[in-house]
Write a protein that binds this DNA or RNA. Sequence first.
DNA 1: CAGGATCCTCCAAGATACTG
DNA 2: CAGTATCTTGGAGGATCCTG
Lengths: 113, 113
Amino acid sequence: MEIKPELCRVDDALGILTGKWKPIILLHLLTKGTQRFSELKRNMPGITQKMLTNQLRDLEEEDIVQRVVYPQVPPKVEYSMTDYGKSLEPILRAMHDWGAKHSVHKKQKMVSE
Amino acid sequence: MEIKPELCRVDDALGILTGKWKPIILLHLLTKGTQRFSELKRNMPGITQKMLTNQLRDLEEEDIVQRVVYPQVPPKVEYSMTDYGKSLEPILRAMHDWGAKHSVHKKQKMVSE
DNA sequence: CAGGATCCTCCAAGATACTG
DNA sequence: CAGTATCTTGGAGGATCCTG
């Protein structure tokens, strides 16, 4: 597909992925499958409940993640990628692969200084 | 390459691409090649000089775009992608392709409501 | 356990004006 | 033509406390 900057919707993808924690949330859900709220929180040191909730709500609203509530005590809520959300994987993968090279690039710049 | 959320550098790529105008600047430079400041500005309705300058400075600092100043009157400054910057193309292309599908997805949701 | 409700901080983004 | 220099503001991000 040819890229046409004028009518291109790159910003749509970016709008979904940007947010300080969204990329890593998606990576966790993509690689490890369905996870509970507390599991996600445990796997992301530094994130607050509020932020995790906010980001998940955003992603849910965009139909990227699915939220399933089990009506029981104590509460149990599971999050997973929707099929639509899984379509983001090529983007995340491209960024991941690039990120690996990037760290090398940075190191090379360091050395040459 | 396997994705490992914990040590993954997805945020590096995102840090470079986020910025309200960076993606479209990069798309213009990737598809049309070297361009002058005024050409870029003309092709991006709504952007202010300040923002264009800021974003270009950021990208230059990251070694993504190259800035060439011709010492003449009136001034002439050309911007182009570095080889390193061109390595971002797969990411932008992935986002572009996804964006095309996304618009369809949104339309389908509209219809089903 | 999985949040909701508040309050606060900070800075990207924009508007505007000036200049070599 | 291609920038700097200020000033301002909305909202993302964070800290903290409360609850079914």
